[in-house]
């Protein structure tokens, strides 16, 4: 215990500083009331679609057809969920999504950290050129077919790597991270570590990384959401259904457009693969539930992420 800490009993008896009361007019109360009502209505508007999806997933299809605008089901049934769990691709999709979300996020954050740190050093030779090349990829890319050929020639087509590597480092995230390192880590701290005998790697992992925790947490959230929601890479780079992520399975259930040119084929295929609305809602609930569950815990990092690296010294 330090010398300046206040004993509990003494703390209790310390007279409190009287609160300053701010005088508020009726207009202030009216404005506050209006804001509360307005924000409340807005919140309800945001919430209703979620509630609708959630409750419809527990309805029987016949009840939905009888009144599609009904929010609360008369009777809760698990028919749609039973059907979904009987669906092989849903289970394998969950496994694939968990692997790419955990593995992809870990790899992404690791690569971002080890790239951002050296790029934040003004004395690094060729830094501007490298940053220019990174910036270039934000505005231009090879396009779908060259990307496909690249993935195929790398030998990672139809592997989980094809779902992890293409989105692993985002130029935008790298710039955010680099700015955060520059603002957070002071030169003097690194110099002190150097004097203590630490090499660059030791400085990075023992001094810099602990200071980057808020940025790393933000990047974890950004990347986890990206990997969880990504289906397009799988559409292009994966040919085995066992490697379909959850979002692609969901898309197969929800989207009826088959993107065939022939309208007759499109109609026939769409008819044969149409799924009841309640089943689609159950699929959405199952798919978003995990990310929805962790979101409240990570929300503050999302907010922080918006202003990350925006202050320039």
């Amino acid at each position: 215990m330090s010398d300046i800490s206040i004993p509990p009993a003494m703390h209790k008896n310390t007279p409190r500083k009287p609160r300053t009361r701010i005088l508020r007019s009726k207009g202030d109360y009216a404005l506050e009331g209006f804001c509360v009502i307005f924000v409340g209505i807005f919140a309800v508007c945001c919430l209703i679609p979620f509630l609708y999806v959630f409750f419809v997933s527990f309805m029987s299809y016949n009840e939905y057809l009888a009144n599609p605008l009904r929010i609360f089901p008369r009777e809760f049934v698990l028919q749609a969920y039973r059907q979904i769990w009987g669906y092989d691709l849903f289970r394998s999709g969950y496994r694939v999504t968990l692997i790419i979300t955990v593995g992809g996020t870990a790899l992404s954050v690791f690569l971002l950290t080890i790239s951002a740190y050296p790029l934040s050093k003004p004395h690094l030779k060729g830094r501007k050129f490298v940053m220019g090349m990174i910036l270039f990829t934000m505005f231009f890319n090879g396009g779908m077919i060259p990307n496909f050929i690249l993935i195929r020639n790398l030998g990672i087509h139809n592997t989980l790597w094809a779902l992890i590597l293409p989105g692993c480092i985002s130029a935008f995230h790298l710039i955010l991270m680099k700015n955060f390192v520059r603002i957070t880590v002071s030169e003097s701290l690194e110099e002190a570590a150097k004097i203590d005998g630490a090499n660059d790697l030791r400085i990075l992992f023992s001094v810099v990384v602990p200071l980057l925790k808020p940025a790393i947490a933000t990047m974890i959230v950004f990347n986890a959401v990206h990997y969880w929601n990504n289906y397009f890479s799988a559409m292009l780079y994966v040919s085995s259904r066992r490697l379909w992520p959850l979002m692609l399975v969901l898309r197969e259930l929800v989207v009826e457009d088959t993107s065939m040119v022939s309208p007759v084929s499109q109609m026939l295929t769409a008819e044969s693969r149409s799924h009841p609305f309640t089943l689609r809602m159950a699929a959405i609930v199952i798919t978003i539930l995990p990310i929805l569950a962790i979101y409240p815990f990570m929300q503050r990092y999302f907010v922080k992420g918006i202003s990350l690296g925006s202050v320039k010294e």
């Binding site: 050929i149 559409m235 040919s239 259904r241 989207v255 088959t258």
Partner: peptide, 29 residues
């Protein structure tokens, strides 16, 4: 069996990149 929701694009890309299989199911377009 690519996803039916993006079947056309996938098949066209396979053909464009020289990855055409021995047998292909596609519209007469």
């Amino acid at each position: 069996a690519p996803p039916q929701s993006g079947y056309g694009e996938r098949v066209r890309m396979m053909v464009a990149t020289g990855d055409m299989p021995d047998l292909l199911h596609y519209g007469a377009d």
